[in-house]
Structure formats: structure tokens, C-alpha cells
Design a binder for these strands. Sequence first.
DNA 1: CTGAAAGCGCTTACAG
DNA 2: CTGAAAGCGCTTACAG
Lengths: 345, 345
Amino acid sequence: MKKKITIDDIAKKLEVSKTAVSFALNGKAREKLISTELENKILAYVEEVGYKPNHSAQSLRTGKTKLIALMVEDISDPFFSTIARLMEEDAYKKGYKIFYRSTENSLQKTRELIDIFRSMQVDGYIIAPPVGIETELENLIKEGYAVVLFDRTLPGIELNSVTVNNFQGSYMAVRHLIASGYQNIAMITLSSEQIQMADRQRGYKQAIDEINKPYLIKNVIYHDQKENCIAEMIKFFRSHREIDAVFFTTNYIADNGLEAIRNLKLHIPQDIGVVVFDDYNFYRLHSPPVTAVAQPIKEISDQVINMILKLLLSNENKKTVVNVVLSTELVIRQSALLKTTSVLP
Amino acid sequence: MKKKITIDDIAKKLEVSKTAVSFALNGKAREKLISTELENKILAYVEEVGYKPNHSAQSLRTGKTKLIALMVEDISDPFFSTIARLMEEDAYKKGYKIFYRSTENSLQKTRELIDIFRSMQVDGYIIAPPVGIETELENLIKEGYAVVLFDRTLPGIELNSVTVNNFQGSYMAVRHLIASGYQNIAMITLSSEQIQMADRQRGYKQAIDEINKPYLIKNVIYHDQKENCIAEMIKFFRSHREIDAVFFTTNYIADNGLEAIRNLKLHIPQDIGVVVFDDYNFYRLHSPPVTAVAQPIKEISDQVINMILKLLLSNENKKTVVNVVLSTELVIRQSALLKTTSVLP
DNA sequence: CTGAAAGCGCTTACAG
DNA sequence: CTGAAAGCGCTTACAG
């Protein structure tokens, strides 16, 4: 293996002190009274030989790795993978590297990941947290790490976060179904205590209450087999023949739900109207195209990175907790356009 | 920030030498003549206080980071994200962490990433390489890094790789169209020099040659706007009215192609048969479900991780180059079932 | 087994 | 500005 160039090599070659080299590299030349001439000479040589500082040595010395952990539910989910990509680009421009892994919404897996990231000595954590991880997050905060939540918050714990208005998004989605003439609207959601799911449910209930109809709610299990999940939904639709529209609260559920609807040979939007929370490239392609609540992905990413960078760079110990809430957008396609628009209550 | 426990703290507390602690931690107790009793005492204490070694210090000292870089075209592509997840799990069990980023198939971006990973001092590289990166890869090899290619190889450079038989997969796909009664079969592919694309093209041509039909090939551009790409395809289909089936060589192209077909109001499989290279959850859900060439994702992941671990752990300098080629499977659904099966030549 | 020591490559306070 | 020095937390060869 080729020998790596070190600061010592450069200092010797240039016959300067390695202090000077280090200062030049870190942009501290002016502050430390190094002449511009010397600074340029050093930087030119560094460029010429392609010197790259040893990251391990820097981290060991400074105690900072310039690494940020990103933990999402499932990195192969289009929502999370798109966000991850935006974040990594953004963070890199600021000198940070992002390391991402999937929690699979499992408490144990998340704990394992936190352990891994701890041993890697990451400086900060960006997390779409599973319920129950509160204590571990509090410990991270106590130990001085930067922590930012996104996608969901955790009730009962005060942490910086970036989320969307799930209540409003769901409410608008169900109102759209009502305005399109649907009356017996079901919601299929996860049997999960996650706050964003609870908020989506509240949005549904609010809209249903306004038309004095009963709730038609079916919970499915996150880790269930795809086939079971579909079978459960089919059973639900069969035992509630009155259902003429359905609101799926995640992509994941909608994938299965659309398959259930196909198995039942129901036609969208004539037999059943469909709206999904979270937009997805694929919905444009579906027959018919699926109406969805779109989250502002780019904006979420920007806000999260800005927030964590601010935490990482500030020295103050007492930090104000900031919770950013962004709005969603209803992307209307053909899956929920049934009748002429009725008058809403 | 809470003070981290170090090996020194443990040694002092237990009144043993830090040499002993280090040996116990690294499982070198027996070899180094440390008593099992002492070893257990140390390990028990380590467990109790939750000591985690400082990764930067270990890396600085050993020159190994136990980090592997994974570079794929686009981590939000379902094929690559699924593979990445399988690989990270597998590697972690062996004590390695995988860091993945998207090359976007750009030479410049890939070079930047290699620079980033170099400065992070990763021990090995797993790459789905863009054409033109040969020199950089050769440099990595020369410097002693472990390098494994997957998804595609690079002609003119001898490197360890795991790929599928793209020729055979494509050939079978087009044969399936022919067997279903289609006669004028187009191929839509990337205008790319990548070897896997060339092989898919060869498979198509071989099958078309066997029925003495002309090639109907349309190239699209990888980085093109979605809308342009769709418009290009529509133009192509309109100027070749004889086309009764189409073979898309990637998911990405098929996404756009299916939209083009919808815009043209063509019915699958009656007006046009469709087969895609690379399977995708969504194809089960599509109306009609899409026939696809499935790659053995789990097997690819296993082979790659085994291969790189072998490279990482062996001390020999002259290593035999290994090229693993796996077979694909044609998953037959409804998008290419037109007529009764005809007799193939 | 122990224990002192060197050294990985950096950063930075300090004396001049 | 320079230059010697300490120290981050580890691993490991070495003398006993």
C-alpha cells in the first residue's frame, strides 16, 4: 500500500513548521499571523501532492468526527430515500458526512443503531423515531449530542423537530373525498402509537364528524406479511359493503390496499375513491392516477440540515427547542373524482 | 458532555495493565497468555460500564477503519436500495460498516465520492461503476484497497465482480414475447456504453435475429427530463406503428415507457406486450401486472460481501480475480400474454 | 502474565 | 511567525 502523505512530510519538504501547515490547512493563517505568502506556498503544495488529512487523527484529536447519523424507518421507502439523498448532499457542502441506516420501526434495532453510531462517535443524530426510544434520546441530549427529529415527534419529550401538519393534510384529503361525492369513507392505517399516525387519524375524524357519518377505521400491522395485510383489508371491505371511498395513511399501506381493491374487482374511482398520504412517483403512473397528500420533501431536508448544523456549531449549552411544522399539498389526480362537486357543509 | 470511558480508566479501576485489557477486548487473551479468569473479569467489567472503544483511535493506530464504501447509481432506486440494505446487514455481522452514496452515473460525481471515501480512509469499495472510472479504480487497487464491482463490469479492466447474465435474461425475455405471439418487438434502452446495457441489447438482437425481424431500438438519455423522455418514446411508437411489443431494459425506462403507453391509449397486452428488465414490487400491482426479469438480489448481496471480506482479510498480495455471474429469472405476469403460445423456431 | 513505552497523524497552547 | 511538545485513545513489540 502506498504511503500516505502526512503533515510532517509537508513541513519537512517545505522546511516550515508543521504548526504553520496545520494553520494554513485550517484557514487559521491570518488569525495566527502566518504570512499570506507562506500560506499560499503551503496550500499550493498541498494541492500539488493531493494531500488529504487523516480523518481518524483529526477526530481523535478534536473529539469531533463531522459525521451525522440519519435513522429512518426504511431507506428503501421512496419517501425516506429521497430525503436521505437531499440531506447528504446538503450536509456535505457544509463539511459533514451523513451515515444512514434503517430502523425498521423496531425499538431494538434503533437501540442497536444508536450503539453503532455512538461507537463511531458521530456528532449528531437525525431521527424519524420509533415510539419508546425517548430515554435513549434524552441520554444523547444529556451527553451533548445534537439531535433533530423529523417525520414525527415524540409526545412527552422536548426535542428539536421538523414535521408536516399531518392533521391538516389528512383533513384536506378526506374533505376532498367528501367534496367529490363520497359518503362512506374508510381509513386504513397502522396500529401504531406514532404521533403522525394519530394526527392523520384526527384529520380523518374531524372531516367525518362534519358530515355526521360513522368512522370506518381499519388498523393493519406494520410488520405483517404482505399477504396477511391484503387479506385483512379484503375482509374489512367485505364486511363494510357501504364503503365508497378509502383514505390510506401511508404509501406502504396503500400499496397493499390497491392490491386488495384489485382483488375485489372494485373500480377506482367509480366503485371506490382513493386518497393516499405521501405522494410517490408511481401514483402518476397508476391506473387511474392516485390522488395523494404530498410532503414538501426538499423543504423538510433543508430545515433539518440547517437545524442540526446550528446545533453542531453553536457553543451555548442551553438551547431553545425549535419545532418546525410545514404544510402539505393535496395533489389531485383521478382516483377520487366521482361526481360533480357537491356542496360541503 | 459526559466523559467517555477509556482503556486506561478500566485498567486503573481493575488494577491491571492496559495491555491486558486490550488483549482481552480483542480476543487475544489465550494467545497472549492471559488467564481466563482475568479475561472474564475484564470483559465483565467492560460489559458493566458499557465501554465502547474509540473508533478513531483504533483506526489511527491500526490503519484500518472497518468501513466499506458502497457506490450505486441511485440509492432511491428500489433495486439498489434493497441491495444496499442487505449488504449493510451482512457486513455489520462481520464487524464492518457500510457507507453508501449515489453516483448518479456521473463520472465527476463518482470521482468526488472516491475522494470523500479516500479521506474517510475506508478499507474497501463496492461499486456499480460508471464507464470511464477505470483509472481511478486501478489506482485504488494499486494502493492496496479491496475493490469489488457489481451490477456491471468494465471492459478492459480485470476486477473482482458479481453480475448477472444480462444477455441470457434479455434473450429469455424477448423469447417470451415471441412465444406469446408478438412479432414486431421494440427495445427501449439507455444510450449508455455500460456493459450490462450492451449485453441486454445483445440478448434482444439474438432473439430477434432468430425470427428474422428487423431491430426496433430506441435509445433514451439517462439524465433527461422525465417529460422529454416520455415524449421521445411517444414519437418513436408513433413512427413505428408496426410495434406490437416492447422490451424495456431498466425499471427507470419502464416507468416512463408505461406512461408513454398510457398516453398513447394503447392497451397492455392486447395492443402492446411489455417486458421489463429488473423486477420491482410495483409490477405486481400494475394493471396489468408486468412481466419482468428478476435479479437474485439476496444472492448478489451475499456474493459481494463474501468477496470483499475475503479480500479484506487475506494478506496475500497477488489475488486471483474472481468474476461471479448469476442467472436471472423471468417472472411471468399478464403484460405479455397475448395469444396462445406459438411454436418457437 | 505485567508495565512502561512508542507511535499512529493530527491540533493547539506555549515559549521564544 | 517558528519549533518543540503534549495529548487525543488505542495497539503491540519488548523487557522483565
